[in-house]
Design a protein around this nucleic acid. Structure first.
Lengths: 195, 195
DNA sequence: TTTTGGACTATTTTCGTTTTGCAGTCTAAA
DNA sequence: TTTAGACTGCAAAACGAAAATAGTCCAAAA
């Protein structure tokens, strides 16, 4: 019984915040939609902001979880990289509240939201790091500085995030991602040497 | 005499807008700082927004111009790529008003500003395109789809823009850029074949 | 012919006040 | 534990008055 209420509150909050934003969603509404008393919400959460942050954390965890699962489906490091990119964009699209963070101005954000974003980014980089490491260990990849490269890829992928927030053309994005992962693996220089 | 007034107005506006934003800068102040009569400003511009857009256009043109010059300093396509990245970030830092566009929320932007940004992006891609083309022609690069790749690189570099808006650590960025341009050229796969 | 200061208007913005709405607390009952 | 509902205090609408500002116009000066 306890867990159900909590899930109901969080799930409703996620939808309402996603549609109307934190400002324009009242706890009264959330309580009504989630079919709990407003007082119950305060049994679980200390404040509206806390609910919002928990929603963001959950979305963040979901994204990482789903990416991890997807990446684990394939074995070769090169495949893992390609799958990582596609999974990241596929599942980020479902993390509506995290995406909305990007649309709002820097000023009117809750301070802790940026640390959630940073943590998400850092966990993405961790996954990238382990993929690169595996590739290097297996002798498939040559990477001089794994950490640096993982972060570079992470930053680069951010460039796409801002783009397809407005674009809805999914196929276009997929094409870009394939191209990018190919470049990432092979480079654009004509190969002259054998290693 | 005419040109001087115009430059004075635009230069003053650039600084004021850069520091206080378009909202919090009054034409009265601009006129005073630029040492012209307010009426003179209206000899040259139809509205405050027009001045702002012209400032943005100039910053945009400056960036492209400077990048082009820098890229032309070197000859090999691989060098051009590396130089492109460094120049882009170096000179974008001086385009304060364009940078500020990124900080504000999507809503309270002048509609035409986004087309200026888009045009800047598109011109960057054009430069990248011509570099890649030269590389392919010279047999240095292997690129299956030049246009797609140019855009991919352009998008990727955006990922860094949002990052170093807050970061001031210049050296860190430079390191990332070097690493990125190396990956871009060589890929991360161990080379096995001769072409 | 272009520039200038200043006067003028029509909007915005600002600001102080009032009013409403909402987050968060508390309680008694289920 | 959960619930409905009443309650408080704060924070944000709502509003109207006052100030500021974008943009116009003109007669004089450069």
């Amino acid at each position: 019984m306890k867990q159900e209420k909590l899930e109901s509150i969080l799930d409703t909050s996620r939808k309402m915040f996603g549609r109307y934003g934190i400002q324009k969603t009242s706890l009264h509404e959330i309580a009504r939609m989630a079919r709990v008393a407003k007082a119950t919400i305060y049994n679980y959460f200390g404040s509206k902001d806390q609910i919002y942050l928990e929603v963001l954390n959950r979305e963040s965890n979901d994204v990482i979880e789903k990416i991890s699962v997807a990446v684990d489906q394939v074995t070769s490091p090169a495949d893992k990289l390609r799958v990582f990119m596609h999974a990241k964009f596929r599942y980020m699209k479902e993390a509506i509240n995290i995406l909305n963070l990007g649309r709002e101005g820097i000023d009117n954000l809750l301070p802790k939201t940026s640390s959630i974003r940073d943590r998400l980014f850092s966990r993405e980089v961790n996954i990238l790091h382990s993929i690169l490491e595996k590739g290097v260990t297996e002798g498939i990849f040559y990477v001089s500085n794994i950490m640096l490269t993982a972060r570079a890829i992470g930053y680069a992928l951010r460039g796409f995030e801002t783009t397809w927030l407005l674009e809805e053309n999914n196929g276009e994005i997929e094409k870009h991602l394939d191209n990018l992962s190919y470049i990432l693996c092979s480079g654009i220089l004509v190969r002259r040497e054998v290693v």
